[in-house]
Simulated scan of single mutants.
Amino acid sequence: MTVPKPGTRNSLTDVAGLVVGNAEDRQVRSGTTVILCEPDLRAVAAVQVRGGGPGTRETDALAPGGLVGSVDAVVLSGGSAYGLDAAGGVHAWLGSQGRGYDVGKQRVPIVPSAILYDLSHGGDKDWGEEPPYRRLGREAALAAGPDFTLGKAGAGYGARAGSLEGGLGSASAVDPVTGATVAAIVAVNSFGETTGEDGFFFAAPFERDGEFGGLGPSPNLANPEPVFAKLDSGIAAGRTNTTIAVVATDARLDHADTHRMAVMAEAGFARAIRPIFTPYDGDTVFALSTGRGPAVDLVGLCRLGAIAADCLARAIARGVYEATGTTDWPVWRDRHATAR
């Protein structure tokens, strides 16, 4: 059987029609990531929310049976509820470009978003009545292009993943059967762990070309005790978290099929983070179809959903693997790069 291989960039922008931009405020120690449709495109979109403490904007508009069903951009941001303002900056910028949902005399941009909690992760949060996120949203939209930074960048700038520094990750794959490209981008700020005590990523069985260290699967993967030991130690005590993601494909999917891809992609969270969907997390995944690629039948949709879950698991591990030390929080590369 031919295994799906990463796309040219091994990132979300391997999906035709999408670009990505990051912006950070290093003094605040937080940032924003914008997934932007190209000017001539509005992507079919759906969303799934599974964490116990989500922070979102315009997700109800993407529910099955809704009127809109397509978007101009998706925003992932740090800043907890303050970070929802980032979508306002993107919304205003898109509106100034004449982009959005056609309501006759005007166009209204549709920009759903989700946020993660990084308020207690260092930095100066004493911003008074002027949180930086609306500005960061606009800056990220202006910076959008085919190439973008992973790790401590964008929405992943202030992120922590269990007992390690978190970050922004991405991964892609091309399905050799349908010819469709599938990809994921994620800001990893999880309550749960992405590795065992030995440093082996839980997502290792899905790794491609050594993209997050090439250590392979942990020999202790089935043993939950190291994970619980970290939780019981108080490392994660008092924290609020959330892992937020977008999966996308160039396949031509309708809204129902895009929603099914979002549902299937959620399995990627469970493959890469233990425990997942906790009361402390607001785990959310958006799904996008740009329609720039092939049409698929239901069997093809099953393939794309499974590949999306794999890409999401890989992207989570890459986000932690690519993270550098911006605080005194442990960094995976410092601890485990020689774990083999």
Rank of each mutant, 00 (worst) to 15 (best):
P4C: 03
P4K: 02
T8P: 01
S11V: 04
L12G: 02
D14G: 05
G17K: 04
S30D: 12
G31K: 08
T33F: 00
V34I: 01
E38G: 00
E38W: 00
D40R: 07
D40E: 11
L41N: 03
A43L: 07
A45Y: 09
A46N: 04
V47I: 07
V49N: 02
R57S: 10
L62W: 06
A63Q: 12
V68I: 15
S70I: 07
A73V: 05
G78E: 07
G78A: 08
A81H: 10
G83T: 11
D85I: 09
A86N: 08
G88H: 14
G89Y: 10
V90Q: 01
H91L: 14
W93E: 11
G95F: 00
G95Y: 02
Y101I: 13
G104L: 12
I110E: 05
V111C: 04
I115E: 02
D118R: 06
S120K: 14
G122D: 14
W127C: 12
P131Q: 10
P132G: 08
Y133C: 09
Y133E: 09
R135T: 15
G137Q: 08
P146F: 01
T149I: 13
G154C: 03
Y157H: 15
A159G: 06
R160Q: 15
R160W: 13
A161M: 02
G162P: 09
G162H: 06
S163K: 08
G167Y: 12
S172E: 11
P176G: 03
G179F: 05
T181W: 03
V182N: 02
I185L: 15
V188M: 09
N189Y: 12
G192V: 10
T194K: 06
T195M: 05
F200P: 02
F201P: 05
P205F: 01
F206I: 01
R208W: 09
D209A: 14
G210W: 07
L215W: 01
P219I: 07
N220M: 12
L221D: 14
P224A: 10
P224Y: 04
V227S: 05
A229G: 06
S233P: 02
G238F: 09
G238H: 13
T240F: 13
V246Q: 04
V247C: 06
A248V: 09
A248Y: 06
R252P: 03
D254Y: 06
A265N: 10
A265C: 11
E266Q: 15
R271V: 03
R274V: 07
P275Q: 05
I276A: 08
T278G: 14
Y280L: 15
A287Q: 03
S289H: 10
S289R: 09
G291M: 10
A295C: 07
V296H: 03
V299Q: 03
C302D: 14
G305M: 03
G305S: 00
A313C: 09
A313S: 14
A315M: 13
I316P: 02
A317I: 11
Y321T: 12
A323Q: 14
D328V: 12
W332F: 11
T338V: 13
